[in-house]
Design a protein around this nucleic acid. Structure first.
Ligand SMILES: [Mn+2]
Ligand SMILES: [Mn+2]
Ligand SMILES: [Zn+2]
Ligand SMILES: [Zn+2]
Lengths: 138, 138
DNA sequence: AAAGTGATGCAATGGAAGTGCATTTATAAT
DNA sequence: ATTATAAATGCACTTCCATTGCATCACTTT
C-alpha cells in the first residue's frame, strides 16, 4: 500500500485505478482544473465516472471546489491537513484574465471580514482577477 | 421626463416600457435577483428581452452582476454614482445559506488584498456566505 | 460460491446562457 | 407627414455544463 492508497484509506475513500489516476493528475497540476480538463486528459474514461470521482474527492475533503467567476467550476487538491471546514483552510484564489488559469494562493489566507449585526459568517469566497505572474512578465 | 428617464438618458440607455418596469422592479428589491426572478415577475414578457435588458443595464453600469457561488448569476442596481470601474465601487456580497438570498453590503468595501510578486490585481470578488439577519434572529 | 455493496458506463435530462433572424417600434432625416 | 434608419422585441434554436436513473461490472464479505 503506497502513500496515496494510505491517504485514500485515511479519507475513507476506496482505492480504484481511476481514482488513483485522477489524483495523480491533480497532484501534478499547479493550477485548478475543470471537469473537461480531466475529460481531455482521460479520453477513454467516461465523463460520469470522472464527475463522480471528483465529487467523491470533494465530499471527502481531498479536493476543494473553486468558483472563479468564469461560470465553470474548477477543482484543486486540498493542502495537507486541510479539512475544508475551518476558516484556517480558506485561502484566496487568483484567476488570470489572460491565460484563463486559476491558482490557489494557499499562503494567502482570507483576511478577517466584518459583517453587519445579525449576519453570521460561515464561509468566504475571495477571488482576485487580473494578470498572473507568467503572463505579466514582471 | 421623470427621474428614471433622466437617469436612463444620462446612462445612454433608451427609454422603453419594459426597461422602466424592470428598473422599478430592481429598485424595489432589497436583494439581488436572478434572471428567472425577473421572468417570474413578468410572465408575459419574453425571456430574451429580459435577458438583453439586463445585459444592457450591465453594459451601461446600471446594474452589476453578482456571482455568489450558487452558479446562477444575480443582478442588483448599482449605487448612485457607481461606475462599476474603480475599486471604490467594489463591495462585498452576502449570501444566506438559509433563505438563499444575496444582498449587497455596499457599505462594506473590499479590503486591500495582497497578491504575490508578478501578479496584477484588476478585479476582486468577495462573497461571504452564512446566515442573514432575517434568518439568524439575532 | 453466493450475496451484498460500491464503482462504472451509457443514456437521458435539466437549467441557464447565448445567438440568428424576422418583425415591430422608436428615432432621425427629408 | 412621409420616409429612411436604427434599435428593441419576440420566437426558435443552440450550446454548454451539471446532474440523475438504471443496468452492469468489480470487489469484498460471509
Ligand atoms: Mn484553492
Ligand atoms: Mn452589489
Ligand atoms: Zn495568466
Ligand atoms: Zn436568509
Amino acid at each position: 500500500m503506497n502513500e496515496i492508497e494510505k491517504f485514500f484509506a485515511l479519507k475513507d475513500v476506496r482505492v480504484t485505478a481511476m481514482r488513483l489516476l485522477i489524483y495523480k493528475f491533480l497532484a501534478d497540476k499547479q493550477v485548478a482544473v475543470t471537469l473537461s480538463d480531466i475529460e481531455n486528459a482521460f479520453e477513454k474514461a467516461d465523463r460520469t465516472t470522472l464527475y463522480r470521482t471528483i465529487k467523491t474527492f470533494e465530499d471527502k475533503a481531498i479536493v476543494h471546489q473553486i468558483d472563479d467567476g468564469t461560470g465553470i467550476t474548477k477543482y484543486a487538491l486540498c493542502e495537507k491537513g486541510c479539512n475544508c471546514e475551518i476558516e484556517a483552510d480558506l485561502h484566496l484564489h487568483f484567476h488570470c484574465n489572460n491565460c484563463n488559469e486559476t491558482i490557489c494562493l494557499t499562503e494567502h489566507k482570507i483576511p478577517q471580514i466584518k459583517v453587519p449585526n445579525g449576519f453570521v459568517s460561515e464561509d468566504i469566497n475571495l477571488v482576485v482577477k487580473g494578470i498572473c505572474d507568467k503572463c505579466s512578465g514582471l
